[in-house]
């Protein structure tokens, strides 16, 4: 890449607005490399101090219900079957068999080929905006992302056509780590376009950075900016298939990017930590971090999600305890 032959990038609106009309790999790189650095010790210290907030009584009750509303109930296994997906949907529709008033998760998250099963099982209950539950599909050769662009786009279109409301895509970490930011950018723009439905509306696009493979906080900040500039509706930490998955410092950092984007443009971007959040106690730390970083208006399913499978049952146990005053046990919540 030289100045004489700048590589033009897909003209995504946000990037054009921020970086100007002559959007090139060079201008994108200059922007990403010009971002302020991240001090790892300081970031982790701040995350740890947010983790010491003590959330009690009425605040805890509100937090528990909110966590349930923010969960993307997930099954992403090679062994997934239609039966497993139907069971997951049933759990999402009625999380706590002992309490019909229990709030419902935001979405179920499945592999692309399971979208028709999930759509069928949800029936009239599909659709977050109509008081129901969304269907989210992972796409773009999840989790590794190692496939040609054509395959990734076909994967995405297939899920959208089958009725997915949300697409969780992975970025090309290989391209990112070798400095080919333009390639990552163009791919996100293309996938976003593949999310377009026949009626002109778009499936919501969550961009998975796979922070466990990006390794440094500086990389996470750059990838977050890149994903937002390319048009992502959400930035998401992880696939859940790589360790470490979501951590509080990484999520805090991504929230800081989202906050800065909001200060700059007034636009609200969502954040989704996924993988490794298993207990109510952990999830509450995330709520505190969201509220104290971007503000509590972010605590809605349109702007914050937990990607989790086992979290829901732990939260339900806590919810039962708050209501009844005593601890129950794992046999009092259903396995999905």
């Amino acid at each position: 890449m030289t100045l004489e032959h700048p590589v033009a990038l897909a003209p995504a609106d946000r990037a054009v607005q921020l970086l100007g009309g002559d959007l090139t790999e060079k201008s994108l790189r200059l922007h990403l490399e010009g971002l302020s650095g991240v001090d790892a010790v300081g970031l982790e210290q701040r995350a740890a101090s947010l983790g010491t907030r003590s959330i009690k009584t009425t605040s805890k009750a509100w937090a528990i219900d909110t966590i349930i509303r923010l969960v993307d109930l997930t099954t992403l296994e090679g062994a997934d079957t239609p039966g497993k997906v139907r069971s997951l949907v049933a759990k999402a529709l009625q999380p706590d068999a002992s309490d019909p008033g229990c709030p419902r998760p935001a979405a179920v998250c499945v592999y692309g080929d399971m979208v028709p099963i999930a759509v069928d099982a949800l029936g009239a209950n599909q659709g977050l905006d109509t008081g129901g539950i969304n269907v989210a599909a992972v796409a773009t050769a999840f989790p590794s992302g190692r496939a040609s662009l054509a395959v990734k786009l076909a994967d995405t279109r297939d899920a959208v056509a089958a009725g997915a409301d949300e697409i969780d895509m992975v970025i090309d970490r290989g391209a990112f780590l070798s400095g080919r930011y333009g390639r990552v950018f163009d791919e996100i723009v293309a996938v976003k376009e593949a999310c377009r439905r026949d009626d002109g509306s778009y499936a919501h696009l969550k961009v998975i950075l796979e922070t466990g493979e990006l390794n440094t906080y500086d990389n996470v900040r750059r990838a977050s900016w890149l994903s937002i500039l390319a048009g992502g509706d959400f930035i998401k930490t992880s696939t859940g298939k790589v360790s470490p998955a979501a951590t509080l410092p990484v999520t805090l950092l991504m929230l800081e990017v989202v906050r800065d984007w909001h200060r700059l443009t007034g636009e609200q971007i969502g954040v989704k930590p996924a993988g490794g959040i298993r207990t109510s106690k952990d999830a509450i730390k995330y709520l505190v971090t969201v509220a104290e970083t971007v503000g509590e208006q972010w605590l809605t399913p349109h702007l914050f999600r937990f990607g989790a499978s086992s979290l829901l049952n732990d939260v339900l146990l806590q919810r039962q305890r708050l209501r009844s005053g005593h601890y129950s046990g794992p046999d009092y919540v259903t396995v999905d």
């Binding site: 959330i55 009690k56 009425t58 605040s59 937090a63 909110t66 709520l287 509220a291 509590e296």
Partner: peptide, 10 residues
């Protein structure tokens, strides 16, 4: 009451 007005935790 907003979430950020955390309930007292003395």
């Amino acid at each position: 009451m907003g979430f950020l007005e955390y309930a007292p935790a003395p």
